[in-house]
Every structure is written in structure tokens, then in C-alpha cells.
Amino acid sequence: MDLTLKIWRQPNASSKGKFVTYKIKDISPGSSFLEMMDELNESLVTKGDEPVAFDHDCREGICGTCSMFINGRPHGPDTGVTTCQLHMRKFKDGDTIVIEPWRARAFPVLKDLIVDRTAFDKIVQAGGYVSVNTGGVPDGNAIPIPKVDAELAMDAAACISCGACVAACKNASAMLFVGAFVSKFALLPQGRIEAHERVQKMVAEMDRQGFGNCTNTGACEAECPKLITLENIARLNREFLAAKLGARKGENVRGGGGI
């Protein structure tokens, strides 16, 4: 199949970018989207041009590195997949494909289609863990966990922190990501112990990183490659409220980064 690609090119973080149009021919419908990009890059390099920089690694939909906004959709026109799992059979011969980087204040562009998602790591560092050191823990079967809770926790834990939720959200909100992270711990007895502290710290950091907030439009859920649901955002809200209302005097973790 022959395609026209309109791709965002930006040499580095401080420069202005622009769209550049490329024509590409004879793409196999069985190729993955990134293999199509590889072919484009191979042809660019052969011509002596700089290839289009894009993030990718595992190419099997689990590492969460790939991140393209394709024709108005993060990870392109398929549901439940990442860009590396998107196949060209989802496009038609002669299509024009517009490829943009994730757009969010918290995800600055580093080059072309590569953005910096360190903000996600910062949110996790603020509290996305169970505070246990290595060793000295009880037997794995010491605390039975209802299967349904383990399954719900796993649903949330499936998040690959690719940032598609932020990219899709009209407010560039990270609530689905934070909701998933808070949920997977809140649903398990091990994570419950510091659940209130965790949710306050993570939300405060989320605000500090400059993400927008949730207006319940559901674009994140629709675009999440791991099909994480809005239920996790509601759980985040619930956990947060319980934490704020339940905290004893002076025990609130101060939140908020202003507007």
C-alpha cells in the first residue's frame, strides 16, 4: 500500500517544530506501524536525511515506550493495542496519516515524536509503592486475598504508563494513570496499610507536574491500550476523599500545586 505521512519534526526540545510530508510506497498490510516507520527511516537514512526519532522498545505492547498520536488517536485506529501492535491492515491504500507526539505540558517534546514522560516516574516516586524493605516479610500465603480483589488489582496493574490517557484527554490529565496505580495497591491488603498516605502524595505530585484534571469525558478509557476503566478514577477520588476526611489533625499531606 502507498501512503502519505505528515510527521511532526522537531530537532530538539528548545526548537520550534513543523510538519513534514513523506510519501512511502509498497508497505505490506501485515507490517506493524513501527515497521512501516522503520522502512521510512531506512529510506531517509539512505538519502542522508535524519530519521524520524520515535520511542519504542519491546515491540510487543508491554513496555509502554511507544507513543505516537496517529490521526487524532494515541496508538492509532485500533482499540486495546499500542502503536507497536498496530498493523498497517488498519489503514487503506492511499491514506494520509498524521503522526504527532503526545501533547502535554508535563510531557515536553525531546525530539520529533519523542516526549519526556519522567513526570510519571515522579508521581510513582512520591508514593507508588508499599514501604517494605527486602527480607523479613511474611509468607506469601499468610494473608489470603479474595480472588476478585486480586483480579481487580491486576486489571489496574496492567497499566504500562505509556501516557496515552494523558495524550487523549482534552485536559492532558493523568488521572487514569494515577487511578490505576492507586487502585492496584488500594485493592490489596498489603497496599491498604499506607493507602491514605499514598493517594495524597501521588495526587499532590500529579498536580505539581502540571497535568490537567479529570472532567469525566472518558477519552482515556476509550484509548487505553490496556483497557483500564474509569472505575479506577472513581476509586482514586474515593480513596482521596476518604484520606482527606479521615486524616487526623496535622496528618494531611499537603496537596495542590495551585492552578
Partner: peptide, 22 residues
């Protein structure tokens, strides 16, 4: 065996049986 205990303590959602055990 220690690894499994450690991971459970960290909140890794391992598959469970209906009785709640791993």
C-alpha cells in the same frame, strides 16, 4: 521462596484461587 514472599509483600497481584491462596 523468599522471592514470592517479597513480591507478595510489595503488592504484586499474583493469580489466586477462590480460597484466596496463591
Amino acid at each position: 521462596n523468599n522471592i514470592i514472599d517479597q513480591c507478595v509483600a510489595q503488592g504484586v497481584p499474583f493469580a489466586r484461587e477462590y480460597g484466596g491462596l496463591l
